[in-house]
Design a protein around this nucleic acid. Structure first.
Lengths: 196, 196
DNA sequence: GATATTCTGTAGTAGACGCTACATAATATT
DNA sequence: AATATTATGTAGCGTCTACTACAGAATATC
């Protein structure tokens, strides 16, 4: 049974807000929050500022929607890699390889949108992205802690550092092959640190 | 024989340009190029914009001077770590530990000024920092290639990725201890990749 | 002392930024 | 058809940015 929405009164929108968020996501991912102006967004959407603000409230609120969308559609599904039936080191190594692949998948929108956003000049954006970042880190830490509690913090830190490095290098234009080689080396370090 | 500079004609400066560059370096390192305005700089220096522009030309030119200064005084002296009489893996591992230490040394000016500058919104700044970045990478690559030519690119990439990750994590406020632990894990990966 | 040179502060410039007041157009409900 | 509601475009708000025209102050040389 599909949700039956009654049509709202008033003049209908000329654009689809969900598609608009997708377009904005591409822009933000490509150039970063600070470098994308409201004028860039409205131009890309073919609308004028008042329509933009009526629909999204502010640039910051739109970015929050973009982050939510990224978490659902663009980010790495951690639970697919961090499974109880997978050896810890193997799961983490596979996660790093997947990161390399995703960060270089779209040559325009490189790196991790969340990781890059934690370094915006806008404090609100940093904090919003920080929540996603911390949640992901905690998921990794808990996955390790289930079988190697002593090593959880240290190895989760290493995974985070590796992913931040991969994201940064992807944004510097590094090729998928070289990114993957670095990810594999980091994976080897984890296998060595967690024998068995 | 010290260079004898004849005093220039005209009204003398009320401030020392070298000290000004040092102060600007601290500001830029702390907040990033984009987030530091000319007004912030002139306020910190106790001068007015015309004095600033007469002395440095533009914000971008000042930043170039800051990068030069950083290369001389703040950056890691690679040649001290990458010596022909040091085992390759040991040299690289020591380099990564030193990076962790430097990136967290000043709790306000965290990370690597060059690495962080490669992600500015200003293209000129990205390019200027990119030159320093590429030169450093090549130095690392050549150090490895002297004894392990097959592995040089792959391992140099890994070192760069690790340093980028360390710089990013330092800027996220990670403590020296945790930064060091990640650096040591990365160093172990290098020792494993280069037995002997 | 006269002049040239250089630095100084006052007070701006033009342009980009995020954002909005307002009148009008397009729809649903009555 | 009348009304309420919502979206739209025009035009522009105030603020911030990097940067500068200009006149006066402080020094060197002549």
């Amino acid at each position: 049974m599909t949700k039956q929405m009654s049509k709202p009164a008033g003049r209908p929108r000329r654009f689809d807000p969900e598609k608009a968020i997708a377009i904005a996501q591409q822009l933000f991912h490509e150039h970063g929050y600070d470098a994308v102006g409201v004028a860039d967004i409205t131009r890309a959407l073919g609308i004028k500022p008042p329509s933009f603000y009526a629909a999204f409230g502010s640039k910051a609120e739109l970015y929050s929607r973009v982050l939510d969308r990224y978490a659902c559609t663009g980010a790495i599904p951690l639970q697919d890699f961090l499974r109880a039936d997978t050896p810890v080191a193997e799961g983490l190594a596979a996660l790093l390889e997947e990161a390399a692949r995703r960060y270089a998948a779209d040559p325009l929108a490189t790196g991790c949108l969340v990781l890059e956003s934690t370094r915006s000049n806008d404090q609100g954006v940093r904090e919003a992205a920080g929540v996603f970042h911390i949640n992901a880190e905690e998921e990794v830490r808990a996955f390790i802690a289930a079988r190697h509690p002593e090593d959880a913090e240290r190895l989760a830190d290493f995974v985070s550092t590796a992913m931040s490095g991969l994201s940064a290098r992807a944004r510097n234009g590094q090729s998928l092959e070289r990114l993957l080689a670095s990810a594999r080396l980091a994976g080897d370090a984890l296998r060595q640190a967690l024998p068995g």
